[in-house]
Amino acid sequence: MIVITPVPGEVTGHAAQMYADDVAEDGFVFAHTAALATNPEAHAAFENLLRAIVPSIGLRTYELATLGAARAIPSPHCLLAHGRNVLRADVLDEQTLAQVARGDDSSLPAQDAAVVRYAESLSTHPETMTDADTQELRDNGFDDRQIVDITLAAAARNYLSRALRALAVPIDEVPGISPALREALIGSRPLT
């Protein structure tokens, strides 16, 4: 990792809460949490952004936009973390999640597949996006506020995923992800 991260036991405020949340849920502090704890105010702002996005689109659509963006980048950190979130929230079953992680959206309902495609386009070639991209979301039942929030969800994932990659944050083993699903989500990338 490029940055020296705050030492557990020496952090206070929001950074201390970030560490405590990881330990309470998984028994250790994730490397990405430690990196983000270097600027806890930015992490808090990011969390506030997500809290402003999710209510209009719901957790399912947020996670699908996140998955589409993380798959496109690709972001092993976010694919693992949000893959687990998708399973825990019962957004997708493990088999469908593995298919989507591999780029096969055929088992998704049309509305979900449109969200994943939109997030993927935003993450790979935003300069080619046109009104047709937002029209596909509109045709699948999303209103203007939801389209903005789907866009923000995918863009937020790009921001965080690209920051973690630029900082060379190690990929942690994420509890609750089977070896087969891990392989589908991130392939054979080493946990370094």
Rank of each mutant, 00 (worst) to 15 (best):
A132H: 08
P179N: 09
T130P: 06
L160N: 10
N39E: 09
A44Q: 09
L191A: 12
E47Q: 09
D144S: 14
L87E: 01
D93F: 05
R165M: 12
P170A: 02
A132G: 12
L50R: 13
D131Q: 09
V29D: 03
C78I: 14
R157T: 10
L80C: 10
S106F: 07
I73K: 03
T38E: 07
P109T: 12
H43I: 14
L191E: 14
N85T: 15
L191H: 12
E25W: 14
D90L: 11
A113N: 02
N48K: 12
H82P: 06
S107I: 15
D105K: 09
A119F: 06
S75G: 07
D21R: 06
L137P: 04
D21L: 10
A154K: 04
I150T: 01
F46W: 12
T12M: 11
D90N: 10
D22V: 02
I73H: 05
R138G: 10
G83Q: 02
A184I: 02
E41D: 13
P179W: 08
L164W: 10
A166G: 09
A37C: 03
L97K: 01
A70Y: 05
S106P: 05
A72H: 04
T128C: 11
R60W: 12
V169C: 07
V116S: 08
V29E: 01
A154P: 03
I171R: 07
L87V: 02
S161W: 02
A166H: 08
R60Q: 09
V11G: 13
G27T: 00
N158P: 09
D149V: 05
A37F: 00
C78Q: 14
S121Q: 15
A70E: 09
S188A: 14
H125C: 15
E10D: 12
D133C: 04
S178M: 03
N39W: 05
A98Q: 15
P8L: 04
Y159H: 15
M1C: 04
F46H: 13
A101G: 00
D143Y: 07
T5N: 13
V7Y: 09
A42C: 08
L164D: 13
V169F: 04
Y19G: 00
T5F: 08
N140Q: 08
H43Q: 15
G13E: 00
S161D: 05
Q111Y: 15
Q146G: 00
G141S: 04
T61C: 12
R189Y: 10
A65S: 03
D104L: 06
E94P: 04
R71W: 01
L97T: 04
P190L: 06
A69P: 01
S161Q: 04
E10L: 11
G187C: 14
A110Y: 05
T128F: 14
P8S: 02
T33E: 04
A37H: 00
A35V: 06
V148H: 15
R182I: 03
L167M: 07
A180N: 15
G9Y: 06
D93N: 06
D105P: 11
I147P: 05
A153C: 10
P76W: 02
H125D: 14
L97E: 03
S107D: 13
T61F: 07
T124H: 15
P170Q: 03
A163K: 13
M1Y: 06
G103W: 01
T124K: 13
N140I: 07
P175F: 05
L87Y: 02
Q17Y: 01
L97R: 01
Q99C: 08
F30E: 01
P6R: 08
R138N: 10
I171K: 05
E25P: 13
H14C: 01
